[in-house]
Simulated assay, not measured.
Amino acid sequence: MGSKARDTAHFARAIGYWYDAKGHKANAAEVVPVTVETRRSIPRNRRFRLHYAYATSAHAWLPQYVKEREDVLASNLYFIGGGNMAEAIITAVRKHDDRYPVDHIYVEDISEARLSYLEKTYQVTPATPRDTPDNVDIAVIAVRPQDDVTGVATSIVNRFDQRTTSVVSIVAGYTIAQLERTLGGERRITRIIPNTLTTVDYGYSGVSSNQAAADAPDSVRKGLDAWLSTFGKPLHVEERLIDVITGFYPPNLVYHFIDAYVDAGVLAGLPRDISKAIALDTVIGGTELLKQRDVLPQVLLNINNSPGGVGITEAYTLNKTGFAAAIQSAVLAAVERTTKLGKEAQ
């Protein structure tokens, strides 16, 4: 049985019934899998939820079945900007549609090729700055700091009702005060700077909101938190800490370390594939041991660094070459750059 047939059988068992291309219930003998072509004819109202699953053969998130929903209303998301970070969030939302159900994901971007890719891969609805779709729950500002953020904010004011649409900015360094100058203080505004680890359910993100968002109805605040939890681990902090977290958390630092670690193994004589396997296993295992013991790294270093041994020799060499200072300098520079980007933003 092919993977598509297995998926079909699995989903049919999971929900007990399907909907055909016209949205009518079908029994097991009349199952009609939802395809990209038929999904547009399925009833698009808040009594139904379209579920997605990743199709390896197509390298895309495709609609698998429509299930009648009895508990929670699905939301509509609107992304202005369809770059890598927006894509990471969309991937996580599709992956966790049981946690935060979504009816529509609209994306506007200056690149038609990019929109075509996102539509094919994630089944988003391409949009333009002239579109005003109904019932948008969250509008996401996902452009770069050097883009026209003020123009994007003005576009939101002109198109989306502040009573129904919350605004979330993932623009590095761009403050809530800067956003309020255009959006107004009555608009619900939240800042969060996630990272690409969201696609694998890791990565802490600093979150801060203005007073209007804090005073929003309980259902709105819970809905926003549910959405934020689909892509990483949100930390509600004072806004001044968001730039610090943004400069501190990117996995690039880890990638640089692993890259140097693998090269070190190759330099010492290991084949690259063996060096990479050992390096990754050591990083993952060492991290897991730190979490299990719930201690600072220095505790385990003291255990491993026996007198005159290999561990203490490594520690001496790292200290002599400025290893710790290099990491700390890189983080401080990243934090400073994050803040500077916000000040330079339009």
Rank of each mutant, 00 (worst) to 15 (best):
S306E: 15
V140T: 00
K22L: 14
R181K: 12
A212Q: 02
D134C: 12
T38G: 00
A139D: 03
R13C: 14
Q211W: 01
D201C: 11
P145H: 02
D281Q: 15
F257K: 02
S41T: 11
S116L: 07
I156A: 00
D281T: 08
S57Y: 06
I15M: 12
F231M: 06
G185I: 06
S329V: 11
Y17F: 13
Q346M: 09
T321H: 15
I105R: 02
K343P: 03
V262Y: 01
D71G: 10
R163I: 00
D215V: 04
N252K: 10
R337F: 03
D20Q: 01
V32R: 05
D148Y: 07
S166E: 10
D137T: 09
I278V: 15
R159V: 00
L332W: 14
L179H: 15
T132E: 14
A216P: 03
A330L: 10
V335Q: 12
T8S: 15
V31N: 04
G311E: 09
H59A: 08
V93T: 00
Y19C: 10
Q298F: 05
E238V: 05
T165N: 04
S205Q: 09
T8M: 14
T128H: 08
M1D: 13
D281C: 08
I138M: 01
A74V: 06
R188K: 06
W18L: 11
L62F: 02
D161I: 06
P101S: 13
R49N: 04
S169E: 05
K233L: 09
V149T: 08
S111M: 04
Q146S: 14
L179A: 10
T282S: 13
Q211M: 08
K222M: 04
G223T: 08
V102T: 03
G265K: 05
L341Q: 07
R163N: 14
V220C: 07
D97K: 08
I192K: 00
Y202T: 14
V171S: 07
I274Q: 07
N27M: 10
D215C: 03
V66C: 01
S208C: 09
I170W: 02
V244E: 03
T154N: 13
P250H: 03
G269T: 04
D225A: 12
K67M: 11
A29M: 13
Q292A: 15
S205A: 15
P271D: 07
Y54N: 01
N76E: 02
L241R: 05
F248S: 01
A12L: 15
V32D: 07
L235V: 06
G232K: 00
A325T: 12
E119L: 01
A213Y: 00
I274T: 12
R114C: 08
N27Y: 09
A226C: 00
S205V: 01
